[in-house]
Nucleic acid binder design. Structure first.
Lengths: 342, 342
DNA sequence: GTGAAAGCGCTAACAA
DNA sequence: TTGTTAGCGCTTTCAC
């Protein structure tokens, strides 16, 4: 006779000839079970291919063993930039081995859609916590999540010391410091920085990091910053503008896509890289090795950051004791797009 | 007095002064409820910010309102290639409005890890169905999923007419046809094709598509195919090899990353694109507009495919009636990397 | 039009 | 060591 539907704990119990609680204890590794019982239960469970229903366990425990992540697709950032894929890869490496799932939501650019997504996640109780990225100036998500009572961990630097748990790389400015020093060593003096969107917290940190090194070397003046919006199109305009006025001998970009766009723009204007202009990207995404010339860039350990964030969240959920994962500090990867100042 | 924890249907019921079943009927839009009751329930629910618990509903209905997707991270394909991000973007556009979640798993390259992921999804009952991509030669996933009784929809072409429900673009070969014809029109005769991995079903389809056009024009001979593995490194070697032997005047690539790598390799060898060599990519990912010269490429409606697949799955789950979503046919986007044969 | 109660699959408290 | 049972939050008969 064929049983329809999935087997339940009761099926396993009756096949093993024991009570349901015995089965429960066995699969949960509780004590107070004779080894003969244990074996019969295990055999029955294997035979039936039974695994405890995640939903039933979730209802019972009031925990879903899933974490959420909501991503905003702004100016196609999501698809231009494998940034998120790497982060998610890292996150999964911590979640998967512990049987946690990742519930992903991609929402439009409207603020409301994002808020709704978080609200639903919380109110429907679909996840035990969430992971946030792209820390924003005046970020309202932290407050919302606290309000919703949903544990959250941010990848990045919180806005204005908001007490949200956050992970970031050690010596987080040091990659940029290295980048600027690398340029300085090559004799560059007019250095441009094409930043990310102004509503990102890291944008301001990075600008500050560039300035620090410059000041340290007595190049008191602020670097000429033309704010990009992380989109390659914006970068193209910013580069044209910058080349026409500041006439820099080197430009740093806030991400690799913009740097690649910068590379092409230079080429298009007859500016040769690195002979006439040095270019440095940020993140060290796979594309930086694909282009010509290969991009010098500030490597970020995105996979490590993802892992660390997941780990901290898991710790907050009482799943692991030690929320610590090693994250590599950012470092400059020198390739072909930088050279001596003319 | 502050209630701790999330409100339940009972809280709403008592606040509204009705029974729990009345609340249930209201939120589920069932008939047999007076409008006064309805209003009081709605008011109470709003006041308590109550939404039915997804887990409880799932247990009750034996449906989770979530679909799964497991991705293999092979040769860094995942992060090199925003392909998946676009697909997921499309998927979410169908799932989100219906309150469905997307449970994502990224697994290592081992076959076992992938199988385990599907098994868990099914046996733990975490999802109602799954979405598959990257159809493989001799794909074992379809059989596994049937075995597990988990509804599945494939984005792409099934291996050997496997009866798994699948979505693909209309006139799916027509983009490649256009590409080859475009090259022919420019006078190219020695055309190379750098394919994807041989274990992908589409690899063979696309090779066939290229050959068809060539034969049609009396260029009986098969195009010289050097099998890439979708990785840019592989592409670099393939291009070198091809340039040294076949000496093509044009090369088609199975994805944009490889094409971009091809662009750089050519440049590095002193081969100018498109003067000495025309290059065509595949997918039209954002990066194709970033590089110099801008990449001529076969655009695929990845977002549309994601939507369509999600839609078909939703229909299979009885969630929507009509599983139909319009997917744009692939088309050649002509940019700067192609030109007349020398 | 409304409410009481059974039960979805599981775990844990309690009894035996 | 083992089994019985209440109850997690919800939907759905079935009486009223």
């Amino acid at each position: 006779m064929v049983r329809s539907g999935k087997p339940t704990i009761a099926d396993v119990a009756s096949l093993a000839g024991v009570s349901v609680s015995a089965v429960s204890k066995v699969v949960n590794g509780k004590s107070g079970i004779s080894s003969s019982t244990r074996e019969r239960v295990l055999a029955a469970a294997a035979k039936l291919r039974w695994t405890p229903s995640a939903t039933a366990v979730a209802l019972r425990a009031a925990k879903t063993r899933a974490v959420g992540m909501v991503l905003r697709r702004e100016t196609n950032l999501l698809s231009t930039d494998p940034h998120f894929t790497l982060l998610i890869d890292g996150i999964e490496r911590e979640l998967a081995p512990r049987g946690y799932g990742l519930l992903l939501h991609i929402v439009g650019e409207e603020q409301l859609a994002e808020e709704t997504a978080y609200r639903r996640l919380a109110e429907e109780g679909r996840v035990d916590g969430v992971l946030l990225t792209e820390s924003r100036v005046g970020d309202t998500r932290f407050a919302l999540l606290r309000d919703l009572g949903l544990p959250a961990v941010l990848v990045g630097t919180p806005w204005e010391d908001d007490p949200i748990p956050a992970v970031r790389a050690p010596h987080s400015d040091c990659g940029i410091h290295q980048a600027v020093e690398h340029l300085l060593r090559y004799g560059h003096r007019r250095i441009g920085y094409i930043s990310g969107p102004e509503d990102r917290v890291h944008t301001h940190h990075r600008i500050r990091a560039v300035e620090e090194v410059l000041e340290e070397h007595g190049l008191g003046t602020a670097p000429s910053v033309t704010s990009g919006d992380f989109s390659p199109d914006g970068a193209v305009d910013a580069v044209r503008e910058m080349l026409a006025h500041l006439r820099p001998t080197a430009i740093l970009f806030a991400n690799d896509s913009m740097a690649v766009a910068g590379l092409s723009t230079a080429r298009r204007l007859g500016v040769e890289v690195p002979r006439d202009l040095s270019i440095i990207g940020h993140d060290d995404l796979p594309m930086s090795e694909l282009v010509y010339p290969r991009l010098t860039t500030v490597r970020q350990d995105l996979v490590g950051l993802g892992r660390a964030a997941a780990r901290v969240l898991l710790a907050a959920l009482g799943e692991v004791d030690d929320g610590h994962v090693q994250v590599n500090p950012p470092e400059l990867v020198i390739r072909e797009s930088t050279g001596p100042a003319r």
